[in-house]
């Protein structure tokens, strides 16, 4: 077997469920209560911790989901322009799965200004813009 199986599992009794962030959360779709896409999970915001860490410091907790037009920063590096970040508090999360389901409808969540600008300025002005294709 590969070497890392020589290591054993930590003898810690886990109350809850272990989840690898990059594997099972990051880059997954975030959808609202009706299943409508709100964005892709670009990052998770954590509580800050001192540096260096004194022994016994409690681990940071996830405070909010972060999504927005920052995927390019993640790829090409560089700071995130804070203004563009859309944050959704963790308490809005309803279920973790193939997509991250939220408990609130999209209308109550921070949405991208591009989407609303294009909708109001362009789409609604074209005849049939509000008509659901039959």
């Amino acid at each position: 077997m590969t070497s890392h199986d020589a290591l054993s599992h930590p003898p810690v009794h886990i109350v809850g469920q272990l989840v690898d962030a990059r594997l099972s959360l990051l880059d997954r779709q975030v959808v609202d209560v009706d299943g409508r896409p709100v964005g892709v999970l670009d990052d998770l915001e954590l509580t800050d911790v001192a540096s260096p860490l004194e022994p016994g410091t409690p681990p940071p907790e996830v405070t909010s989901l972060v999504h927005g037009p920052i995927v390019l920063e993640r790829i090409f590096g560089g700071r995130r322009p804070d203004a563009h970040l859309l944050r959704i508090g963790w308490d809005a999360v309803a279920k973790l799965g193939p997509a991250i389901e939220l408990a609130a409808p999209a209308s109550e969540l921070p949405t991208s200004w591009v989407e609303s600008w294009l909708r109001d300025r362009v789409i609604v002005r074209i005849p049939g813009g509000r008509h659901v294709p039959r």
């Binding site: 409508r36 964005g39 999504h67 999209a106 989407e115 294709p133």
Partner: peptide, 23 residues
């Protein structure tokens, strides 16, 4: 594009519900 950036998409929605998808 919509599925990569997480925009709302789909013909089962009115265009106004998926502006960037239609644009």
């Amino acid at each position: 594009l919509a599925q990569f950036f997480g925009w709302s998409w789909g013909k089962f929605r009115a265009p106004a519900e998926a502006a960037r998808f239609h644009i």
